[in-house]
């Protein structure tokens, strides 16, 4: 596999196995006749980076949108930071979401706003007591954390794909979330930029003490960022464990996925 060495070595994460921050039980979700998730169970522990790996169209993005409360499961229970999502009213759900950072595949930066305005947007609406100086300091801090201080007055259209991802992550970090959800963080990026994003994910885990769910089909990303990997296929989890434990499997679906990605990367 073509692999670019990370400059940032993943440190051993402090994971509290007695403290699940996300719990999914028997999650089912269908779109029309298409059954996307078929009884998924999952625990994500405090301090853990969990990678959900699988081919496109296997329901990975649906899974984290259910965790964030953007989609409702047809059946099953979702508990985040001890609160059952389906039992929350709008205000309670908004309060919970302030503790969850969501990095979108497309970055989802607000086109009509500068980077500064993008970063201020969630802050001024969730922490209304903050003064101008505190807002400016918070914006400068997260931009520094993602290494893009110079981009503060640029617009999203002036940024590269990797920079957009970083600003997208910075926008979630500004609320100092307890949980980070990354949807395909390295999709569409060149290998060098992908490594930078993987480094950033690990840095965020350690600096902000977050628990993360990382959705990806990128093996390099999974290996670099995941404390635990779960393999999703046809709406069910096939196997979970460390990267090596998952890919030691003889399951033909896992072997096929691994070999195909290897082949593509080799070519």
């Amino acid at each position: 596999m073509t692999q670019v060495e990370s400059k940032y070595k993943k440190l051993h994460a402090q994971i509290d196995r007695n403290n699940p921050v996300i719990t999914l039980r028997d999650i089912h979700k269908a779109f029309g006749a298409l059954q996307v998730l078929k009884g998924v169970d999952l625990d994500v522990y405090k301090g853990e980076n969990l990678v959900v790996l699988g081919r496109s169209g296997t329901g990975k993005s649906v899974l984290i949108k259910i965790i964030a409360g953007l989609l409702k499961p047809d059946r099953g229970q979702v508990s985040v930071l001890g609160q059952e999502i389906d039992k929350l009213d709008t205000r309670e759900l908004q309060a919970l979401r302030a503790k969850i950072g969501f990095s979108f595949q497309s970055s989802a930066l607000y086109d009509g706003m500068s980077v500064r305005a993008n970063l201020e947007f969630p802050l001024v609406r969730n922490k209304r007591h903050l003064g101008r100086k505190e807002i400016d300091d918070a914006v400068a801090q997260v931009l520094d954390d993602v290494g893009l201080s110079q981009a503060i007055d640029q617009t999203p259209s002036q940024l590269s794909g990797g920079q957009k991802k970083r600003i997208g992550i910075a926008r979630t970090l500004i609320l100092q979330p307890e949980i980070m959800l990354y949807d395909e963080p390295t999709a569409g990026l060149d290998p060098l930029t992908s490594v930078e994003i993987n480094d950033l994910i690990n840095e965020v885990q350690q600096r902000y003490n977050t628990s993360s769910v990382i959705i990806t089909h990128d093996l390099t990303c999974a290996r670099a960022t995941g404390d635990r990997i779960v393999m999703l296929s046809e709406g069910c989890f096939l196997r979970q464990g460390t990267f090596d434990e998952v890919f030691e499997s003889d399951d033909p679906r896992i072997r096929n996925f691994y070999n195909t990605i290897l082949l593509i990367n080799h070519e």
Partner: peptide, 16 residues
């Protein structure tokens, strides 16, 4: 365009 580029969902998850 905000809807199809997930910007509206981004507002929702940032508690707005």
């Amino acid at each position: 365009s905000m809807k199809v580029t997930e910007q509206i969902e981004a507002m929702e998850v940032s508690s707005t």
